[in-house]
Design a protein around this nucleic acid. Structure first.
Lengths: 343, 343
DNA sequence: CTGGCTGGATGAAACGTTTTAGCCGCTATA
DNA sequence: TATAGCGGCTAAAACGTTTCATCCAGCCAG
């Protein structure tokens, strides 16, 4: 029950306490025979290091935390997996905290993490405002890396994906396929991602000067149901005004659109092409496999973790960096149907 | 940078170190005036408790760990959310570890958690064999609760969902709807859940003595693609032998079946009824909303956490319990179509 | 033979808490 | 008046590491 400590191991092996510690931390500095005696003692006593004591001495822990908005969101789970990989390779441990978009919980987590003297924190903060809690952490010397939020702060690193570019990629693709009437579906626009993706699409359209038009339909949420409703609404338009392609702010909306259109007898992509965003697992598994803009999610996590570990490295003078990843368009059947360009 | 400690706070407030500790831990035992002085000192110095020291003294931490097979699996994310809620209410912290079905990583995690003297571990172990690592933890006095695995061990609590009952529910429902030719799709059978759900379905069929028949089609995995292939195969049967209902070992398979059948011009549920398992988020959002057997996932997590905390409670003599939850059938359109009973 | 060096071990300090025993001055009780 | 009790506080020990200054024996160079 009462776990053996280093002192008992020392007594058992007939050496001093410091020697045991050396076996544990710098095995090459102790003579082979002694080392073996100590190792034997450790295994017969079932000794397990006490991390609290170790941390207390060291002044900081060997764990890194990641605070996400929602553990159940596939975006974050992939980011977590990426970060995990890097952190574990470095011999540290990643703990996952869930703020659930609740800033009180976020604050509580950060307080606890601070008490634990974690090595650093990867976080997608709730909201977009200033972050006094994070500044406090940074003041204390705990590195913070922002994930997919607020690029550009001077006192911390960040990683993000270029959503404007994502919108651009989708739009360029649809224009390449010869579409002239295109709709952007997504909302609310207060979500930065939704707005950025639209901005990218609009910019691409502008630049091409193709005479194509982009109609925006703002949805109230980013769900399958919202997609269905939006599609329903599109269907009220006379066929000649109806978009021949829709670009959706995320895949859930896109799937909703796909379902509704199919149910109403329209063919995808022949009658209407669809491009989604996120490339969730189901995109490929949809009735008509969905074209989608893919974000390098695990790489986001990996890079964030790397930046953090680099900053946490002692001596090294660290310069904050802001890494922006480029999304990638995955073309599948839902948009793979060139139109004869009229006009 | 160098964070203030309790001693500095004491000096700053002109009291002894012990008094500061009392303010922190038993505020009512210290006179209001003194207390205020201490609190002021704490806030002006920006003092933050050092959890390592606290833990070292206490002999154990205030964190609970959950080790899951896959952080990205919706089943586990829901379990995590449930556990999180309970653990946080108890003022502790939940750390999520991901074994990724890799027993080496699982072992590594358990070692680290042991070093950290965590309060307890919720775990779905990799594989079904004996668990020496877990036994070691338990020997050390660290409570372990099994989640969805290996019910019935004597030295630990467990929570699980009755998969046999789940199979039974699905089957009873389909029989109630008047189906006579029914297929069970899922695999590999080496997965306990797949086997149990089938066992339940078979038992239900047996008991009803309805003359209905259950055809089993074993798939190689539990994916949408596997579902599609399985459906394709069913379609090779002459119509008179073709099942009028399929019960799938999970929703992914069910969605694949739904897609393939629809693509081949069969109507769901009119021609073929479908029941899935897990009630994933997409079940409701499918082209034809999918009937499915729902597991109380967050409750699984909540209960597991409760059992753990109860066991970790000191004085209290704890008796290990094995809680089995009952799944629930959610009927949606995919199976909502009674048949005229022939014969 | 001496002095310096080296590999290998030791002892003690330090990390920051919590807790326990005890002290002090005061009041209520016998 | 002595005593017990109590509220409020202090001093010191203890938790288990890591690290650092020492120490010792043996060895080599001079």
């Amino acid at each position: 029950m009462a776990t053996a400590n280093i002192k008992e191991v020392a007594r058992h092996a007939g050496v001093s306490l410091g020697t045991v510690s050396n076996v544990l931390n710098r095995p090459d500095t102790v003579a082979p025979a002694t080392r073996q005696r100590v190792l034997d003692a450790i295994s017969t006593l079932g000794y397990v290091r006490n991390d609290s004591a170790r941390q207390l001495r060291a002044g900081h822990s060997r764990t890194v935390a990641i605070v996400v908005l929602d553990v159940a969101n596939p975006f974050f789970t992939d980011v977590v997996r990426g970060a995990e990989q890097v952190v574990e390779e470095a011999g540290a441990m990643l703990v996952v905290c869930n703020s659930g978009e609740d800033s009180a919980r976020e604050r509580r987590h950060l307080e606890l993490l601070e008490e634990q003297r974690v090595r650093g924190v990867l976080i997608t903060p709730v909201g977009h405002g200033p972050q006094p809690n994070l500044d406090k952490l940074i003041d204390r010397g705990i590195p913070v890396v922002l994930v997919d939020r607020g690029t550009g702060r001077a006192n911390r690193c960040s990683v993000a994906v270029d959503d404007v570019l994502g919108g651009r990629l989708a739009m360029d693709h649809l224009l390449d396929q010869g579409h002239h009437r295109i709709a952007y579906l997504g909302g609310p626009l207060s979500i930065a991602q939704v707005a950025d993706r639209h901005a990218g699409a609009a910019a691409a359209l502008e630049e091409r000067d193709s005479g194509a038009e982009l109609r925006v339909a703002v949805t109230t949420s980013l769900t399958v149901a919202a997609g269905r409703r939006a599609a329903e609404e599109l269907l009220t338009l006379p066929a000649r005004q109806r978009p021949t392609a829709v670009f959706c702010a995320n895949d859930l909306i896109a799937l909703g659109v796909l379902q509704e259109l199919t149910a109403r007898g329209l063919r995808v992509p022949a009658d209407v092409a669809i491009v989604g965003y996120d490339d969730i697992e189901f995109a490929d598994a949809a009735a008509v496999p969905l074209s989608s803009v893919r974000q390098p999610r695990d790489q986001l996590g990996r890079t964030a973790a790397q930046l953090l570990l680099e900053e946490a490295e002692p001596g090294d003078a660290h310069r904050h960096r802001h890494v922006v990843f480029q999304p990638e368009l995955v073309v599948r059947r839902s948009s793979d149907h060139p139109r004869r360009t009229r006009r």
